[in-house]
Amino acid sequence: MWFWLAGAILAEVTGTVALRFSQGFSRLWPSVIVVLGYGIAFYSLSQALKGGIAIGVAYGIWSAVGVALIAIIGAVVLKESLTWVQIGGIVLVIAGVLALELGRTSHAA
């Protein structure tokens, strides 16, 4: 099930980066990658949920890791700015996802 979640994250990140290169869906191949990426992402996420990952945890991890990876790719590869405030926000999002997972674990005990 975690394999599916990792696949969902990678597919979503790939689709989002391709979205940047699609120029408003005016370029064919980046646009095709966007559609495929998001389609694969949602299918993979559904398989992770089917495998037993709680929806709040799965969606939290999917979105937090996706946001972090996109921000890093944007800064490193696409030369977009990334301020310390934005980095702090990413850290807070990841901390929130960890709190979801830890809260679920400690509540079940």
Rank of each mutant, 00 (worst) to 15 (best):
L5D: 00
V91A: 10
T14N: 06
A41I: 15
L82I: 03
F3E: 04
A95E: 05
G24I: 02
L49G: 11
A8V: 11
W29H: 13
W4A: 07
I53Q: 13
V77T: 02
L19W: 05
A99N: 14
L92Q: 10
I90V: 10
F21C: 02
L36A: 12
R104M: 15
S81T: 08
W29N: 05
V32A: 07
T83D: 02
V97N: 02
T83N: 02
A6D: 12
I40A: 13
L92T: 11
A18L: 06
W2S: 07
A71G: 09
G103N: 10
I70E: 04
T83I: 04
L10P: 08
L78N: 13
V85L: 12
G88M: 05
G89S: 12
V32S: 03
G96E: 05
E101N: 15
V85G: 04
K79Y: 10
V32G: 06
H107T: 14
L82K: 07
M1G: 11
E101F: 11
V17L: 11
K50V: 12
V35F: 12
S63Y: 11
L10S: 03
V67I: 13
V85N: 07
V76C: 13
S31D: 04
V32T: 04
L92K: 14
R104I: 14
T16W: 07
F21N: 06
I94C: 08
G7R: 00
W4C: 02
Y59V: 14
G39I: 06
V93C: 10
V77K: 05
G7H: 01
L100M: 13
L69W: 07
A109V: 13
V65D: 00
R27H: 12
V65A: 03
A54D: 15
L98W: 10
R104W: 06
T105F: 12
L19M: 13
L100D: 08
E80P: 03
G52A: 08
G7Q: 01
I72V: 11
L45A: 08
A18Q: 01
I55N: 14
